[in-house]
Amino acid sequence: MKLVDIETVEPGQILGRTIFSSNGAILLSVGVHLTVFMISTLKRIGVTTIYIDDPNFRDIPHQEVLSVETKRTVIYKMSEMFAQLRSGKTFSSRAIADTVDDLLEDVLRNQNNMIHLSDIRTADNAMFLHSMNVCMMASLIGLNMGLNMVQLKELAIGALLHDIGKIGAPEVQEGRMHHAWRGFDLLKNKREYSLLIAHVAFQHHEAVDGSGAPRGLKNEDIHLYAKITAVANIYDNLIYPQGDEEPLLPHEACERLNAYSGTLLDHEILVQFMRMVSTYPNGISVRLSNRETGVIVRQHRGLPGRPIVRAIDKDGNDAVSYSEIDLAQNPTLFIEAVLS
């Protein structure tokens, strides 16, 4: 499986990763043979890269933290909740709590899998996937920081609902109209939830140096759950930005996060996050410092910048062969550029 630019996809190629619609239904299933119409539709709805099934890379481990079924459930429940709020109704606290239970089961089962945000986003599903990914990443960070199950569930619900104040919010968000205030006001009245859950929505845009919003809180005044959610939120927004901003590749996003250490983000939480994130995810094409090109095929947990690369070798007759280079065993080699 390889990650490729949508502009290079040809009819007949096989989709390597399921694409979801805005209500959690499967838009295109893994294994489908792509047609001209499908490719055109993906371009029209804003898809820029997709995973393609490549017989030379079928053995690449596909290790997700969340299962396809859990993703479908989370996206469906989020779309249902947003629709209820837009129509002026309340939402079911129990339904969200049950959804988080399913998500946490996957997180606990797959806690050794590295973070790799790979789901294809469209204009319709972007907000739901953002909420799901922030929840998943925040839960993994909390787990690695030793939070107990009660704390993990509070954190996960807060992270899943961190942007709830954006529903129906005005374009200009100032003062009590800031979506953090709106989210806090919505969640603090949910008697089934701890007030700490509401504070995740309230504080996830605060910064440890006091430069954040909406209240300019400083490090010691920001709750741990909100600090954790802030790291996950900013990372996801760097990979999948809103508006006209250019998306960053995972290694570029990690560099940006490190630049925020001690200003926007808590240093110790960043350390935990960097231990879990896949800086160069499986399936992407890279060029090495020795000018060889290849595809990332496996990872070393704790050494995110030193994965295993399957290099593509061509002889004088253009015959193709492959050899694997373990960057952890070759300290003089490094990844010079990401090609997809």
Rank of each mutant, 00 (worst) to 15 (best):
D5P: 00
E10G: 01
G12L: 02
T18Q: 09
S22P: 07
N23L: 08
L27T: 10
G31N: 08
H33N: 12
R44A: 14
T49L: 07
D53Q: 15
N56Q: 13
N56E: 14
F57T: 00
R58S: 14
D59C: 08
Q63L: 15
Q63N: 14
S67R: 07
K77Q: 15
K77S: 06
S79E: 11
A83T: 13
L85Q: 11
G88N: 07
F91M: 12
S92G: 04
D101T: 15
L103S: 02
E105M: 13
E105Q: 11
L108V: 13
Q111V: 07
I115A: 09
D119A: 05
D124G: 15
M127G: 04
N133Q: 13
M136V: 10
G142P: 01
L143A: 00
G146N: 11
N148S: 07
N148G: 06
M149K: 15
Q151G: 10
L155Q: 04
H162D: 01
G168I: 02
R176S: 13
G183A: 06
G183R: 14
L186Q: 03
L186G: 02
N189Y: 12
N189C: 03
K190E: 11
L196A: 07
A198R: 02
H199P: 02
H199I: 04
E206G: 07
A207Y: 15
V208A: 09
G210H: 14
D221Y: 08
I222E: 02
K227I: 04
I228M: 06
A230N: 12
I234T: 05
N237L: 14
L238G: 01
I239E: 05
L249R: 11
H251Y: 14
E252C: 09
E255Y: 06
L257W: 08
G262P: 05
L264N: 11
L270I: 07
V271F: 10
F273T: 06
M276R: 05
Y280R: 08
N282D: 05
E292F: 07
Q299L: 06
R301M: 09
L303T: 13
G305N: 15
I308K: 05
V309Q: 02
R310F: 08
D315Y: 03
G316M: 12
N317R: 12
D318P: 05
D326F: 12
A328C: 04
N330D: 12
I335Y: 09
I335P: 01
V338R: 01
